[in-house]
Write a protein that binds this DNA or RNA. Structure first.
Length: 808
RNA sequence: GGGCGAGUGGCGGAAUCGGUAGACGCGCUAGACUCAAAAUCUGGUUCACAUUAGUGAGUGGGGGUUCAAGUCCCCCCUUGCCCACCA
C-alpha cells in the first residue's frame, strides 16, 4: 500500500498547476466572474508567518470552492513594497532597498506556492516597480488637477526617530505606529488629499457594505459626522468675533462662558494686560506638552482666564473667555461655548474655576449628575416650554437670520496627509516653479523615477534625502521651461495600496492605469480577505474608488463588496506571537516536519471560526494529519480491495448526500471548522461501513465525493486521490458534487419525548407515522408512564419529526 | 468615559429558525497489535449518585417570558477589542 507522504505528493501538483496555468484568470470567459483577494503583504525579510498562512488558507478555500462551482475566479497576488523596513535595512547595510525587496519577494512567492495557493501569478504586481508607481503618480496628478491634492503649512505629527511626518491614522496613543517613539508637533508645508470632500459620500455607503459591523462602526466613528451650528460671539470692547461650533444650539441660553484652544489664533490677542503673562505662559506650556502628557492629565482640567468678555447673543449676558487645552484646536472652530449645566466637561471646568451654571433644560427627577439628554427648555426666553430636539433647527435658522451663525455639519475626519520625508516611496510628481508655483509633471514624463543613491539616511532637516541630489532636483518648469525644482517628498505607502485592486484586473497595461472595460467587468472585489486595518487602508481605498467613479474612470463607487475579516493565530499559551518573545511558529517548518501543506491549511481552518483569535496547538495539527492519513488509507484500501460484495449501499448514499449538503452550506457561511468536522464524521462512518464490504460504483462515488469536498482545504492530496480513482481530468476541473434531497430522507425518525420539559425517552418511528400515533406512542413509553403518575397529560405538543412535549 | 463583541467540559470549539447541550478534534483512559515502544486500530470520557436500565445538577451570576431558553427580555459580574476631552 502506498503511504501518505505529503512531500511526495505536494511538489508534483504544485508543478502541475504551474505548468497547466490552472489558475490563470481569463478576461474573456463567458462564465460568471468571482474576484477574491487577500490584502497584499509587505514582503518582509522574515518571510511568511502563520497569519499569512491562515489568510491564504481562507482565500484558497473560497477560491477553489467558487472555481468548482464553475465561476471564473480571479485570485491575484502582489507586493506592497514601499515602506520603512526596507529603507531602514538599507541604511544599516547599504544594500539598495530594491535589491532587498527582490529577494524577499522571491522568498515569499516560493512560500505561497508551497502552501498550494491557487494564485494567478501572471498578474503579479509590485508597488515599487516604476511601471506600477507611474500610474500612482498619474493618479496623483489627476487628484492635483481636481483640487483633491493640495499643499498646506500646518502643525503635523513628526516622528523624531523615523524623521518623517505621519498621518493621524499612523499615530497610536501619541506614538509612532512603526517605531513607538513619542511623536511631536511640527509646523511644515505638507501635501494632503482632500478626503474630507468625500466624508458624506463615504458615510452614506457604509450601511450597504457587506462588511463586519465592527469595521463599519469604526469607519462611521472615524468620519464622525456631527450636525449642529456655528455661532458667533462678539467680544466686549475688542474688535474680534469668536466663532464656536455646537451640536446643541438649543442650549445657547445656558452658555455661560467661552473656551478657546491654546492654539486658537485669537488666544493671545484677547489676553487683557494684567492677564497677559498668565495666558502666554499657559499657551507656551500647552503647546510644549506632548500628546501623551495632555492625555495623561485629562482628568484634571486646566485653563486660564483671558480677562476678556464675550456677549451671549441670545440673552445679552457677559461671558468670560477662557483658554484651556481640553478644547481641541483641530476640531470644529477650535473654540466652544461652555454649557456647564448640560455637559460634564464644561461642568467640571466651571466647578473648578467657579463659573456660573444655568440650567436650560428641565431634567427628569431621577437623573443623577449633569443632564445631557433632551427635554423641555427653561430660562430660554421665547423658547421656554419648547422641546430641545424640536427647537434645534429653529435656533440655527434664527442665528442665520440674525447673521450671527448658521447651521453647520462638522466631521472628525481630517484631510489625509500624504507626503513623507523619506526615500523609499513613490516620488510626488510635482515641479515647483518660481513663476507658476506647483505644476504637475506632464503625463508623458511619468514615471518620475526614484533615483538610485548611496546614502539613504534622512538628515533630520525636514526634507527627504532626495533633496540632496541636485541632478535630480533641478529641472525645468513644464509650463514655462525656466529652471525649477522637483518636489522631494515621497508618497505614503497607503497611496500605492489604494488602487492595486483595480490594477490586478489589467496589470500589464502600459497605456493606462487600467482599461475601464476590463476593470468594470471584474469589479468590485467579491471577497476581500484580511485581518488588519479598520480605518486607514479600508477607508483610503474606498475614497480613491469614489473619486475614480466621479472622474468617469469606473462604473462602481465601492471597491469591495464583502470584507472577510479573520482573527489572529496566537502562541500556544494564548499570547501574541512575536519574534522578540521567540514564540513564533514558522508555517514552512510545519510543512517540512512532514505534516505537509494540506495538513497545515486544514488545521488552520479547523481551529475555530475564522473571525476568532485562536492559539496554535502543535498536537492539534497532528490530529489533522491523522485525519488526512485516514482519508488516504481508506482510498488505498478501496483501490486494493476485492470488490465483490455489497451491503448498506443506501446508507452510504444517504450519508454521502447529507455530507455534501452540510459541507456546501458551511462553505457558503464561511464556517470551515464545521465543514471539516462534517468530513471527519463522513470518514469515520465510511470506515464503519467498509467492514460490511465494497460495492464498486457506490464506493467510487462516495470516495470521489470525499475528495472533491475536501479539495478546497487539502488540494494536493485530493488531486492525487482523484487521479488514482481513474479520472482523466484533474480535480480542479471536476466541479462540485450535488446533493439529492430525496436520497437524504430516511424512512425512520428519532423523536424526542419530553415530560415537563425534561427528556424522558426517545422513539424510533416510521417516517409516515401520523401525529396522533406518535403522540400515543410517546404517552405509552414506560419511562413516560412513570412520570405521568397515573394522571392525564394536560397538554401534548408534537413538533413534526422532532419531539413530543408532554405537560402534566 | 463612550461604542461594539464575548463568557459552554481539562483545552480549541459545536448546537444555522426557541426543540436531544457538549458534534468534531486535542488531551486523558481502557483494550487490541507488539518481546517492548512508537505508529495504527477499537471502546470510554460534563459533573455527582447509582453503574443494568436510571436519577439529580449543569452553558459567568440573579430574575423573567415559554410546553420548551446556551439561544429571547431585564439587571449584575468578568473579559476582549476599537475610539478616547470631537463640544
Amino acid at each position: 500500500m502506498k503511504r501518505y507522504n505529503p512531500s511526495d505528493i505536494e511538489p508534483k501538483w504544485q508543478s502541475f498547476w504551474a505548468d497547466q496555468k490552472t489558475f490563470v484568470a481569463d478576461n474573456n470567459s463567458p462564465r460568471q466572474k468571482f474576484y477574491i483577494s487577500a490584502m497584499f503583504p509587505y514582503p518582509s525579510g522574515a518571510g511568511m508567518h502563520t497569519g499569512h498562512a491562515f489568510e491564504h488558507a481562507i482565500v484558497d478555500a473560497i477560491a477553489r470552492f467558487q472555481r468548482a462551482h464553475g465561476k471564473n475566479v480571479l485570485n491575484p497576488m502582489g507586493w506592497d513594497t514601499f515602506g520603512l523596513p526596507a529603507e531602514n535595512y538599507a541604511i544599516k547595510t547599504g544594500t539598495a532597498p530594491a535589491e532587498v525587496t527582490k529577494v524577499n519577494i522571491a522568498n515569499f512567492k516560493n512560500q505561497l506556492n508551497r502552501l498550494g495557493a491557487s494564485i494567478d501569478w501572471s498578474r503579479e504586481i509590485n508597488t515599487t516597480d516604476p511601471e506600477y508607481y507611474r500610474w500612482t503618480q498619474w493618479i496623483f496628478a489627476r487628484f492635483f488637477e481636481r483640487g483633491l491634492a493640495y499643499q498646506k503649512e500646518s502643525l503635523q505629527w513628526w516622528c523624531p526617530v523615523d524623521k518623517t511626518v505621519l498621518a493621524n491614522e499612523q499615530v497610536e496613543s501619541g506614538k509612532c505606529w512603526r517605531c513607538g517613539t513619542e511623536v511631536v508637533k511640527k509646523s511644515m508645508n505638507q501635501w494632503f488629499f482632500k478626503i474630507t470632500d468625500y466624508a458624506d459620500a463615504l458615510l452614506d455607503e457604509i450601511p450597504d457594505l457587506d462588511w463586519p459591523a465592527k469595521i463599519k462602526t469604526a469607519q462611521t466613528n472615524w468620519i464622525g459626522k456631527s450636525v449642529g451650528a456655528e455661532i458667533e460671539f462678539t467680544v466686549d470692547g475688542v474688535d474680534a468675533v469668536i466663532t464656536v461650533f455646537s451640536t446643541r444650539p438649543d442650549t445657547l441660553f445656558g452658555a455661560t462662558f467661552l473656551v478657546l484652544a491654546p492654539e486658537h489664533p485669537l488666544a493671545k490677542q484677547l489676553a487683557a494686560n494684567k492677564f497677559k503673562q498668565n495666558v502666554e505662559e499657559y499657551i507656551a506650556d500647552a503647546v510644549k506638552k506632548s500628546e501623551i502628557e495632555r492625555m495623561s492629565d485629562n482628568k484634571e482640567k486646566t485653563g486660564v482666564f483671558t480677562g476678556s468678555y464675550a456677549i451671549n447673543p441670545a440673552n445679552g449676558e457677559k461671558m468670560q473667555v477662557w483658554i484651556a487645552d481640553y478644547v481641541l484646536s483641530g476640531y470644529g472652530t477650535g473654540a466652544i461655548m461652555a454649557v456647564p449645566a448640560h455637559d460634564e466637561r464644561d461642568f467640571a471646568f466651571a466647578e473648578k474655576y467657579h463659573l456660573p451654571v444655568v440650567e436650560v433644560i428641565d431634567k427628569p427627577d431621577d437623573e443623577p449628575g449633569v443632564y445631557r439628554g433632551e427635554g423641555v427648555l427653561m430660562n430660554s426666553g421665547v423658547f421656554d416650554g419648547r422641546s430641545s430636539s424640536d427647537i434645534r433647527e429653529e435656533i440655527a435658522a434664527w442665528l442665520e437670520e440674525e447673521k450671527i451663525g448658521r447651521p453647520k455639519v462638522t466631521f472628525k475626519m481630517r484631510d489625509w496627509l500624504i507626503s513623507r520625508q523619506r526615500y523609499w516611496g513613490a516620488p510626488i510628481p510635482i515641479i515647483h516653479c518660481q513663476t507658476h508655483g506647483a505644476v504637475a509633471v506632464p503625463d508623458d514624463q511619468l514615471p518620475v523615477v526614484l533615483p538610485e543613491i548611496a546614502d539613504y539616511a534622512p538628515k533630520g532637516d525636514g526634507k527627504s534625502v532626495l533633496a540632496g541630489i541636485s541632478g535630480w532636483v533641478n529641472t525645468t518648469c513644464p509650463t514655462c521651461g525656466e529652471p525649477a525644482k522637483r518636489e522631494t517628498d515621497t508618497m505614503d505607502g497607503y497611496a500605492c495600496s489604494s488602487w492595486y485592486l483595480l490594477r490586478y484586473t489589467d496589470p500589464n497595461n502600459s497605456n493606462q492605469a487600467w482599461d475601464p472595460v476590463i476593470t468594470n467587468a471584474w469589479s468590485p472585489v467579491d471577497y476581500y480577505v484580511g485581518g488588519d486595518h479598520a480605518v486607514a487602508h479600508l477607508l483610503y481605498v474606498r475614497f480613491w474608488t469614489h473619486v475614480f467613479n466621479d472622474m468617469g474612470l469606473t462604473e462602481f463607487k465601492e471597491p469591495v463588496k464583502k470584507l472577510v475579516y479573520h482573527g489572529y493565530i496566537n502562541a500556544e499559551d494564548g499570547s501574541k506571537m512575536s519574534k522578540s518573545k521567540g514564540n513564533t511558529i514558522d508555517p514552512l517548518e510545519v510543512i517540512d516536519q512532514g505534516y505537509g501543506a494540506d495538513a497545515l491549511r486544514t488545521y488552520l481552518l479547523f481551529m475555530g471560526p475564522i473571525e476568532l483569535d485562536a492559539p496554535w496547538d502543535s498536537r492539534g495539527i497532528a490530529g489533522i494529519y491523522r485525519f488526512l492519513n485516514r482519508v488516504w488509507v481508506l482510498n488505498q484500501e478501496y483501490l486494493e480491495a476485492e470488490k465483490s460484495f455489497t451491503t448498506n449501499d443506501d446508507a452510504v448514499r444517504r450519508l454521502q448526500h447529507k455530507t455534501i449538503r452540510k459541507v456546501t452550506e458551511d462553505h457558503h457561511r464561511l464556517s470551515f471548522n464545521t465543514a471539516i468536522s462534517a468530513l471527519m464524521e463522513y470518514v469515520n462512518e465510511l470506515y464503519k461501513f467498509k467492514v460490511d464490504g465494497f460495492s464498486d460504483d457506490v464506493w467510487c462515488d462516495a470516495l470521489g465525493t470525499l475528495a472533491r469536498l475536501l479539495a478546497p482545504f487539502a488540494p494536493h492530496m485530493t488531486a492525487e486521490i482523484w487521479q488514482q480513482l481513474g479520472n482523466s481530468s484533474s480535480i480542479e476541473e471536476a466541479g462540485w458534487p450535488q446533493w439529492d434531497s430525496a436520497l437524504i430522507v430516511s424512512d425512520t425518525l428519532t423523536i424526542i419525548v419530553q415530560v415537563n420539559g425534561k427528556l424522558r425517552a426517545k422513539l424510533t418511528v416510521a417516517a409516515d407515522t401520523t401525529a396522533d400515533d406518535v403522540k400515543q406512542q410517546a404517552i405509552d413509553e414506560p419511562n413516560v408512564v412513570k412520570f405521568l403518575e397515573n394522571k392525564e397529560p394536560a397538554k401534548v405538543i408534537y413538533i413534526p419529526g422532532r419531539l413530543v412535549s408532554i405537560v402534566v
